[in-house]
Design a protein around this nucleic acid. Structure first.
Length: 228
DNA sequence: ACCCAGGGTCATA
DNA sequence: TATGACCATGGG
């Protein structure tokens, strides 16, 4: 077998955890709502908030805009930062409607879409990429704190790279593959919540062998920059 | 009681 | 550009 690579790590994670089935969303819009609500928040809390919105029949852009902020905030309360997220949710909905809805927006190129998303209040790099990948099904690799933690511990990145730099490295290393990005990000998140959170060197986990190889591989050779 | 969670904005230097 | 404060609930 070759040296541990970005793909190799993916296969190890997949073998260890199995398919993730992300995003557990229904419509493209619900996925977007989840992307905003899950900012710095445990997913279990987001599910409660989405359930509340569903019960109130508010899972559409127009319905959310037509709902008063105080009521909206009350419904999404379990997901935390409810005042902040109320504003962000509305901003997202206004953007969707002002641009002809999801279907129409979906005809834009990935690059255009990303630029547009980043202009929406409350949508930063990670949320934008969550939406691009999981809602619009575009080949965009999502970078998050877990990705930095895991790959810097493996020595494949420094962890101090900028968001865009990291994203492009992963995309270059993996090739354009929406399904792969989808599953990989999910696996990273699931893995990060496991034993490796308390075991920095992944002893005993599915990446232990990779860790043991770290000293001997060209770090990140397949992720972009070759480190000596 | 403390820490963290599927981040982002805004003010300040 | 680079920190730091702030947002807030719920589970371990």
């Amino acid at each position: 077998m070759g040296r541990p690579s970005c793909r190799n790590i993916y296969y190890r994670l997949l073998a260890a955890y199995g398919p993730s089935g992300w995003w557990p969303g229904d419509s493209a819009f619900v996925v977007m709502v989840g992307a905003v609500l899950t900012q710095n928040t445990a997913w279990a809390n987001v599910e409660k908030a989405i359930a509340n919105l569903r019960s109130a029949n508010l899972l559409s852009p127009q319905a959310i805009i037509d709902t008063r902020s105080t009521r909206l905030a009350k419904l999404i309360r379990p997901s935390g930062y409810f005042n902040v997220k109320t504003k962000r949710l509305r901003a997202l909905c206004h953007w969707l409607i002002d641009h002809g809805g999801i279907e129409n927006i979906g005809s834009a190129s990935t690059r255009e879409l990303r630029v547009a998303l980043l202009k929406v209040h409350g949508v930063g790099p990670e949320t934008a990429d969550d939406i691009l990948l999981y809602s619009f099904r575009r080949p965009v690799f999502v970078i998050d704190a877990y990705t930095r933690r895991i790959f810097s511990r493996l020595g494949l990145i420094t962890g101090a790279e900028g968001y865009e730099a990291l994203r492009k490295r992963f995309e270059a290393a993996l090739g354009e593959d929406t399904s792969l990005y989808n599953e990989y990000h999910a696996l990273i998140v699931r893995h990060a919540k496991g034993t490796c959170r308390t075991k920095p060197l992944c002893q005993g986990c599915c990446l232990a062998r990779v860790c043991s190889h770290v000293a001997g591989i060209s770090l990140g050779s397949d992720i972009g920059a070759v480190k000596k």
